[in-house]
Each structure stands twice: as C-alpha cells, then as structure tokens.
Design a protein around this nucleic acid. Sequence first.
RNA 1: GCUCCGGUAGCUCAGUUGGAUAGAGCAACGGCCUUCUAAGCCGUAGGUCAUGGGUUCGAGCCCCGUCCGGAGUACCA
Length: 596
Amino acid sequence: MTIELILRNKILEAISQLYGQEAAPESVQLQSTRKEFEGDITLVVFPFVRMSKKSPEQTAEDLGNYLQNNVEEVSGFNVVKGFLNLSIASSYWVNVLADAYSAAQFGIKEATEDSPLVMIEYSSPNTNKPLHLGHIRNNLLGFSLCEILKANGNKVVKTNIVNDRGIHICKSMQAWLQQGNGETPESSGLKGDHLVGKYYVLFDKQYKSEINELVAQGMSKEEAEQNAPSMVAARELLRKWENKDTATIELWKTMNGWVYKGFDVTYKNLGVDFDKIYYESDTYIVGRDEVLRGLSEGIFTQKEDGSVWADLTAEGLDQKILLRSDGTSVYMTQDIGTAKERFNDYSIDKMVYVVGNEQNYHFQVLSILLDKLGFEWGKGLQHFSYGMVELPNGKMKSREGTVVDADDLMDGMIEVARQTSKELGKLEGLSETEAEYTFRTIALGALKYFILKVDPKKNMLFNPEESIDFNGNTGPFIQYTYARIQSVLRKATDQQINITTPACNLELAGKEQELIKKIAQFETTIKEAGDMYSPALIANYVYDLVKEFNQFYHDFSILKEENEERRNLRLVLAGTVAKVVRSGMKLLGIDVVERM
RNA sequence: GCUCCGGUAGCUCAGUUGGAUAGAGCAACGGCCUUCUAAGCCGUAGGUCAUGGGUUCGAGCCCCGUCCGGAGUACCA
C-alpha cells in the first residue's frame, strides 16, 4: 500500500473522529510538497473547514496531530496557511527504494490471460510517396502508446492499414509508364519509395503544365483539370485496376513492392513494427458490401445519380457520402470494411486509431456509421488524435515539395551526432561498429524525444536546422546521464564493491529523499500516461528524474563516500534511477547506451 | 458562415482532479574540468499566463464574450 493510500484512509478517519462527519473521498487532496517548504506530502485542508468550523490553520493543526499520532510513517508536520505539510519518515523512503531496486519490472504491469486486448492502428501510409515528418510523429506516438498500454497490463496488437489502392498510386504508375524508361530501384540506385515518389512529383508537374496549356487554349480551369491527358490516363489506370486488368495489376504490384521494401527500411531505422498489416485493396470490398447491406436495410439512402449517403443530421452532423455515383468506394467505405475485418480477426476489447486531428470529424462519423450498421463495438472506437507538425515557413505540403523526408532527416541527424561525438572526443575505446551504433542511438534518441515530449494534442513546430539539439531537455541529455550512472556502477564493480539491498535506518539527506520520491512517482506516471494517451507525460517525467539526479550527482559523491552504508545506499539509488530511466525510455521507444 | 482545437518568457515547450511565490530548455551574460564522463553543473536576466467579465476561500486551469492562429466542413485520402 502506498503512503498516499494510507494517508487518504487515515484522513477520512480523522475527520470522522474529530468532527463527527463523513468527508467525501475525493475531497482529500494530497500533493507532493513544494520544494520551498519542509515536508514530503501536503494535504489541502480548505475542503474540511466547513466541517471543523475552525480556521484553516487550526484544522490543519488538528489533522496534523491526529496523523502524527496514528500513522507510523508520519514523522512530523507543519502548517502554512491552509496547507498541512507532512514529513514522512526516512525509513519509509528507504523501503520504497529497496522495493524499486529489487523489483524485476518496477512500475510495469504484465498482461495476463484475461487482460483486455487493445488493437492500435498507426502509421497508415499511402504507397505513392516516402514517409515524411508527419508520419514520424504518427509512428513514434503510435509505437510509444503501444508500449505504454502494454506497461499498463494490456495485450496489444499493433496494426497498420496500408492505403495501397486509389488514384494516388495510379498517378505514379502513369508517370512511370510515360517517363520511366523502365527505371527500377536497382537501375537508379534509389530507395523504392523514393523512386515511386519521384514519379508522383513528375506526374504533378506534367499535370500542372497540361492544365496551363489547356487554359491558355481557352478551357476553364475546372474543365482543364478534368480533361488533362495525364489525369485522364491515371483515371483509366484506376478503372483498369478495378477491372483487374492483368498488366495494370502487375505494374501496381511491382511498384507497391518497391515502396514496401523502402518502407521496411524506414520503419526499421525508426524502430517501429507491426503485428498485423491490413491493405485497403482487400478491405474496401468488405466495406462496400457493408454499405450496400446498409442501403438494403434502409439505414442509408441512394440518390438518383446512384451515390449512397448516410444522413447524420439527427446526430447534429452532415450528410456523408459512402459510395460515389459510379459505385466506387471512398475513404469512409474502406474504414468500415477494415474495422469489420479486424473485429472478425481478433477479439478486440478496444480499438485505437492513431490519426491526425485533421480527421477528427471522419472518426466521429465512422463510429456512428458502424453503430448504425449494428456493430456493438462501433461506439467504442477511440481516435487518438494528435496535432500537426509545422515548419518555420508554414506547413508541409507534399505536392509543393515542402516536406521533411523521414529518411533524410534520420540520416542528417546521425551525421550530426557523429560530428559532435568526434568533436567532443567521445569515441575512445569504442570499436567502429560500437561507435556507429552509439551515433545512431543518440541521433534517434534526440529525434524521438524531441517529438514525444510535446503534448500529442497540440500542433508542434519543427525547425530542422535549430530544433534538434543534444543539450538541455533532450534525449541525448537523458542518455548521457544514464551512461554516467552505468560508468559509476562499472567502477564500483572494478573496486569490488558489493551492492546490497539497503535495509539501513540512515537518515536521508534532502536530495536523496527527493530522488526516491521522484522514483516512486514512476508507477502513477505510467498509469496516467496510459489513461491520457500521452507519451509526453513519460518524457517529462524521465527528464525531471534525470535533472534531479544530476543535481544530486553534483552535490554528493557516490564512490568516494566513506560511510559504507551510505555509499551502498547511493549506489542503489543511482542504479534504480538508471533502471527507471531505461524502462521510461523504452516506453518512448528510445534506446539507451552504456557509454557515450 | 458553422463545428472543433489552440494562444504561458525573445524562441521551443512543461504546468497533476482548481491550491502556496507560474517552471524547464534554447538563445544572452557571468562562473566551474588536480573532484565518480563538462553532451554536465551553478548563477544573472527574462511573465499583464491573448483580452474583458464571471464562478470561489483560492483561477494559467472551470463558465460567458471578444481578438488572433490552426483544422474540418457532402462524390480527395
């Protein structure tokens, strides 16, 4: 039982004993005491003054006395205005540390047979271009969320829906057919996804110049957009694809194959993976069948032109198209099909979509539509909505080429890490491969931490030149502190120091106790991060812990401490901080290094 | 127009269910490598929490209005 729980119960008891009234459990507000005051845990007494009919100060005195006399762990108290600051005995904190130190998985809950199964969709790329910075935020958030939910005792299935069909890939195909001269990743030396992306850009260039030409000939802009030869050809490819034309299907398979190979490399470098991948070329048919069923059951309506609609005005929303007048599927249709497939394949307790906030409306509608179609899980779908990544000069537009490419970004950061390491002379004693691994880990740590430390809900600004740093509140700073702790622990081993679980009744120094308190918060932080879907809570927690440790490290010596008991305690403290940092970073998908 | 989200230091961001004197990092300035890793530590400076009201013992946080920014808004995904 944690100290908070013990106090909570005793405070309710105290109020009942002292004032003869029952206080609501949620009126007990405990918080950690601010640094400028003495004490560890603070009770806010304002909610109880009505019951005590005394001043806040006097009420706090009453409660303080009661708790000191009736709770073993409470070693003292002081009152400042309406705040009761309780001091908790050192022995309690030493025990907390001992528990954390010896626990195999401190703060992490393992899933069991009957744990809920959560399926999390993230990444969800189109197959016509390489991944960019926006995808990076998605992938990092998705992966981290999976880790956090696992740590909260859930079974997790990581899934990806690949948008492999549609007009976008046909545009790349069309440009490749017209201008490609049979170019392949092998012949060009380009990564597959970049090669296909190159033709997507070429298509757009060509398309735009055709429009300009037609407009110059006197056609209206709308007409020109419809009648530009490139677009006509791309639409023809889409039609052929839907009719299963052999050559078209073959080309589609080949080019998608190139892209998948490229994606695999990016995913691997980013350190994310999936348990199950769905393809929209499979699920859109399921979705279309569901929509047609809905139509025949009178849930949806059809217009004269043949298009199928859902009327959501009763729910306060608009009318939503589900099938185009030519019978083809839209985005929504595919998501209906994908959802149905998933719930067929797994016994899902909770389905989470990691998708940008531009699609808030889409998921609101999807949930209602599935509910209308009679799927009892429809209402329970959860959209983990995150903000956009903006650049200093505005937002990213793939067509305008103002995107930050994922591969380029990672390569660039690894290069910076390599240079910085060399300048700082951090390489000595490391083999070539060890050094490379270290650069990579640091660079990825910087990138991941930078993105994950921001509240997912908010838009964030990313300045490629300036944003990424290796100093201050960054991934490398945390990795560095971890490496230094490892170094101390190695030296302890070299000096034949035997580290044992602390069972002493040493009086703790202020900073030692601060650190233990911080360590004790790991468990609740994981829970909160799981409840709120916020890797940022973990990131900020780990930073605070590391910052706290650095101050401790600066003020106290560990190995040079002469009192053996105290030295042991501090080694245990350092080791536990390292352990918490390692698991915290793992929840963010960030690796740590033994030396840097 | 309507709906949703946001606005905290020059910049990037934290800020627990409403609690004490709003915190970090970057950038600037000053100090610290004969001390367990200086990718570090210490210090100085930097704030009308967009704005006007309201709720209450107490508001950066909750409610209403205004301003600014972003996203979505019926045959793109």
